[in-house]
Design a protein around this nucleic acid. Structure first.
Lengths: 341, 341
DNA sequence: CTGAAAGCGCTAACAG
DNA sequence: CTGTTAGCGCTTTCAG
């Protein structure tokens, strides 16, 4: 195998202590000794063993990121930013895909078969408020997205109700009245979809419109395919909507695809708005109006929370609940009148 | 802090050895003892310390995945599959984003500041053949994508020349003659772009067409934006092409966006083909013809190679060079005649 | 400024 | 079947 601290010490004719000092710069070492040690290190190609260091330090320098899936523009982008921010703090990130599996999320929250991670950033999917609260976090925890009523862990999220309200209000301002919603997930308990639905209904009511249950379409996943399916159902219904608010951009793009397929013109006959501001929506035809959460800030704040908690002397930092700003980005899919761009 | 093996042993009135046996199932333990130990484990909420275990075993159960960026449909999807396959083998994956930075790739290949990973899967970007070969791999290594002429590490890739040839040949078969290519990266040395260009030129020549340098557009990145920019340049040129082969789907979608913007009809006036088969292309308008590499198989084979190397008694397994199958998926963007779907 | 030595938590060889 | 014990490679207290 590879060489250890001891090997280097022997080769340089010094003690392990001195080598350690050279490697970590933890104490003053004479230039001459340092030189000798450095040579030995280079010759032997010595690399400190992280496992041993972690064992000693009680820290691994590794944080976990648990998301439903990497394969999805939104989570991919977010994961990229989180990894980038973590690298900036010289943390390594291990990624777990929960695939919306409650069991996987539970396992991770419980400390997941082995103490490797110094902390965990998790975007809960299947788990509901009650259970998140019940599972006493065995490690520093940051929740991405919705719901931790008990305030046991830090939470970083956008104001989904307000954001959805804005999106729907925008559609109303474009003169649309028959506004459908795509993306409800009654089988999930993470709350995100429910909050976006709430904002949507609120906007409708404020405009004097009674939300129609048949225009609130549930989906099995948040992918394009489901958006297309839901759109087809809406178009097949008795009264076709003149606008759609999809709870994710992927659903919106799926809906747009189906509109094209059926020969429905966007935005003339059907305006579409999404949520997430993924890159695809900036280059689709027409380009997609969407709610844009500040993803960079989500990543930064999440890492900051984790750092505070990991490095805090006592771990009695009160849980913070951060609301990340968002803005409505208006593009071609909700252009006024008949202009597609 | 949290409790250790010893604590559990004390609480259960047995030795550490026995607890270890219960945890790992490594030897037969009487049902009664096992029961007592299990209770102690539950009561104390004991979790084995991975750092200690790794130190002992000389293995961490962690593999590294180094890709240019997570934020990009192709790499996001591939990373998702790799993580999934790794989970299946109970490996954890740490993700590094190299951002196309040669320094970052070099550092990782050299063993990257600490022996944490049991192996590394890397998709080289900035590094060229020569250097990859020179940097003696200090750990089991699998190369995704192009070029390891010396055969120092395992390599998993599609046949880029053949695939590009097929795509261009398909455009020729649709009657197109003025076929442009978008995606050359003369500043990079990983070879992928050059190979796709080679396949493209080969197809043209076989059809009796001399490749025109002004129709081979270089890009700074493989994203939509650059595809749009390159397309604009082509449309502004003296002779507009009647087809485009883009070296990635993202570039293709960017090109398609620009075509829409300029009022050029796809596929009637301009046929477009891409490479990667990302999900966006299945729902774009029109849908995108593309070369589809078998990503699942890439992930599986890469993990298999790594496993072979990590678990091989002597580490003198000869390097394998696996070519992953691909197929051309024909969709709306190259539909014959004037049919957009 | 440097050496010796203890010990982080775990596994496995060696008794019993 | 179970107890004892020696390290894995590193950091760090205590001497010198």
């Amino acid at each position: 195998m590879s060489s250890s601290l001891k090997d280097v010490a022997a080769r340089a004719g010094v003690s392990a202590r001195t080598v350690s000092n050279v490697v970590n710069g933890s104490a003053r070492v004479s230039a001459q000794t340092r030189q000798r040690v450095q040579e030995a290190i280079d010759e032997l190609g010595y690399r400190p063993n992280l496992a041993a260091r972690s064992l000693r330090a009680g820290r691994t320098g590794i944080i976990g990121l648990a998301i439903p899936e990497l394969h999805s523009p939104y989570f991919g982008e977010l994961a990229g930013l989180l990894v980038e921010e973590a690298q900036r703090r010289s943390w390594t990130v291990i990624i777990d895909q929960t695939r919306g599996d409650a069991e996987a999320e539970r396992r991770l929250l419980a400390g997941g078969g082995g103490r490797v991670m110094d902390g965990l950033i998790i975007s809960p999917w299947a788990l509901e408020a009650q259970e998140l609260a019940a599972t006493a976090p065995s490690l520093p925890l940051v929740l991405l997205g919705e719901r931790d009523p008990q305030g046991l862990a830090d939470r970083v999220a956008v104001d989904n109700v307000a954001a959805a309200d804005e999106a729907a209000t925008h559609l109303l301002a474009r003169g649309r009245r028959r506004i459908a919603a795509i993306g409800l997930q009654p089988h999930l308990r993470n709350g995100t979809a429910e909050q976006r639905a709430e904002g949507y209904r609120r906007a409708l009511r404020r405009a004097g419109i009674t939300p129609r249950p048949e225009w609130e379409r549930a989906v099995g996943s948040l992918h394009r395919e489901e958006g297309a399916r839901a759109m087809a159902e809406l178009l097949d219904g008795d009264a076709a909507p003149d606008a759609v608010f999809a709870f994710t951009d992927e659903l919106a793009l799926g809906a747009m695809y189906m509109a094209h397929t059926r020969g429905v013109r966007v935005p003339e006959e059907l305006a579409i708005a999404g949520f997430d501001d993924i890159e695809d929506g900036r280059f689709s035809h027409p380009t997609l109006t969407t709610v844009s959460p500040d993803k960079r800030q989500i990543a930064q704040r999440a890492l900051q929370c984790l750092a505070d908690r990991i490095y805090s002397p006592d771990n009695e930092v009160p849980a913070s609940d951060l609301t990340i700003p968002h803005r409505l980005v208006v593009r071609g899919s909700t252009a006024p009148g008949g202009e597609a761009r």
